[in-house]
Simulated scan of single mutants.
Amino acid sequence: MASGWANDDAVNDQINSTIEDAVARARGEIPHGESLSECETCGEPIAQARRKAMPGVRLCIRCQQEKDSKKTSQAGYNRRGSKDSQLR
């Protein structure tokens, strides 16, 4: 069935691409490497249990909670466009 300029799997490709972008963004936020013994923001000691549970941790729990509360949701890129733009 003809669907204009897009191939039949275009919507699925867009959805998969959006999911791949979200996964890549989430993986980029995972700490890696050596854990710090002191928080890089406030200088307070980071508990050994936290460093063991989450390798690569750089912030104490309080600073991490503040950072997480300020984080906004990523809206993502609208790859599909509007219906009007597809009809032209």
Score class of each variant (00 low, 15 high):
K71T: 09
L59A: 01
R58N: 08
D13G: 09
Q48H: 11
K67T: 15
N78S: 07
R80E: 12
N7D: 11
D13R: 10
C60K: 01
E38F: 15
N7E: 07
I30G: 00
C63A: 09
K70C: 01
I30P: 02
D68A: 14
N12T: 05
K67E: 14
D84F: 08
P55T: 11
C42L: 09
V11E: 01
I61P: 00
K67Y: 09
S73E: 15
Q64D: 10
R88G: 13
S3I: 04
E29V: 00
A75R: 12
A49W: 08
R88D: 09
A22S: 05
R51S: 01
P45Y: 05
I30L: 15
K70T: 02
G33L: 04
E20W: 00
A2Y: 08
D21A: 14
T72A: 10
A6Q: 09
Q86I: 00
N7S: 07
M54V: 14
Q65W: 08
P45K: 10
V23S: 00
N78P: 01
G33I: 03
A6L: 09
G33P: 01
G4D: 00
L59T: 02
N12E: 06
P45C: 06
L36C: 03
S17L: 13
I46M: 08
G56T: 06
A6K: 08
P45T: 09
V11P: 00
V23K: 13
E38T: 15
C42N: 04
G28S: 01
I15R: 11
I15Q: 06
G33A: 05
G43H: 04
A49G: 12
K83H: 11
E20T: 09
A2T: 08
A2R: 08
E29Y: 03
S35I: 00
A26N: 07
P31H: 02
I61W: 12
V57W: 03
P55K: 12
S35P: 06
A26L: 15
A24M: 04
V23Y: 07
R51A: 01
Q64Y: 02
I15M: 11
Q64L: 12
P45R: 11
K67D: 14
I19Q: 07
A26F: 10
E40V: 14
S35C: 04
R27N: 14
Y77T: 15
A2I: 04
G56M: 05
R80M: 10
S17R: 10
L36Y: 09
N78I: 02
I19F: 05
A26H: 03
I19L: 12
